[in-house]
Design a binder for these strands. Structure first.
Lengths: 179, 179
DNA sequence: TAAAAACATGTAATTAATTACATGTTTTTC
DNA sequence: GAAAAACATGTAATTAATTACATGTTTTTA
């Protein structure tokens, strides 16, 4: 039997559907927003995966209609899917995170601090990451205005906090080398 | 004409070969070590890419033999390849880095601070990231023992510094939530 | 000196992921 | 009321990446 790649996407979808039944479109939004800092998936990857997961018996869907005829599929977990999710969360995560950062790699190929390309490159990234940091902070303010909100979605708070700290570090690091 | 995916791997290989002629094996090591924090590629991806790049005229190779018969291919840049590298480094990098972190995603699905799984999960990751941090610091000590070493491979120093700071943040963040 | 680890190069099979193609509805904004 | 944006779902084509298969040499270690 072939084990194949880990198919982590399915687990993430299980986790998202466990929070509440959702459409593929909703899931795609989640990958752009709250979890996009830590995992990415397009709708073209999500819709086929949903079909596959329904075939496996981990999720089911209910057809609904918005307005006159806009068809939606509201997916939710089966008990089997829920069990799979619980097992995944509980098992160890021995792999360090994988980051792909094209900018940092370009820096690697800059040989001296005097290279005229260096400062503009750092400047460009600073603009980008400051904007991202501001955006994440803004989101924390709106999503978690008080302790009650934090307590009700603690995991979400944790990862947003992590993402903000990470961006803050990135900006600080860039500024350390900016003149 | 189809534009296709960005094929960043080729540029990274160009950059590595620009430092010094290397074999595919050497390149695979680089992806495990100095740049592995920011890009990953296995030898099974590297060898075919080298052939492709040689066909495109960006690199060439020289056959050498170690010992009695161990054949090696020492790849190096052609002028065309060098030009391609320079163009890549100079062009903007408007995309934020992409991170895939399975552990953080698991946290997202933890609903309350009282969940009994939370502390062991944080603990496990702390062990992992402390080890990684120690490893990176150790490498900085050996690779960059003095200012001269830094000046001679500034880009390398920059990205190692970035990776250390990032790991330090990760550990600090984990410890913030550990009791 | 035998075994293990590291060096060295490839291909095959499979899965993951992106980009493009394709279509239609509902809501919001000007 | 028209246009734009957002909602909604899919497939096709292609590229990227991983895992497994496959083989052999050289160096280091016990």
């Amino acid at each position: 039997m072939i084990i194949g790649q880990r198919n982590r996407l399915q687990y993430i979808i299980l986790g998202l559907l466990n929070q509440r039944p959702q459409t593929g479109y909703d899931l795609a939004k989640a990958f752009e927003n709250e979890i996009g800092e830590f995992w990415q998936a397009q709708h073209s990857q999500i819709y086929p995966m949903l079909k596959r997961m329904e075939t496996s018996g981990d999720i089911t869907h209910e057809d609904t209609v918005t307005g006159e005829k806009l068809a939606k599929k509201q997916y939710s977990l089966t008990p089997a899917g829920h069990a799979k999710l619980v097992a995944w969360v509980s098992e160890p995560s021995p792999e360090l995170s994988a980051t792909k950062d094209e900018f940092i790699l370009k820096l690697y190929f800059i040989k001296t601090a005097a290279d005229p390309r260096l400062q503009p490159m750092l400047q460009e990234q600073a603009v980008l990451h400051r904007a991202q940091l501001a955006h994440l902070k803004q989101r924390r303010e709106t999503v978690f205005p008080n302790q009650t909100a934090i307590d009700q979605a603690y995991g979400h708070y944790l990862i947003l906090d992590h993402a903000i700290g990470r961006e803050q570090y990135y900006v600080d690091w860039l500024e350390k080398f900016l003149r």
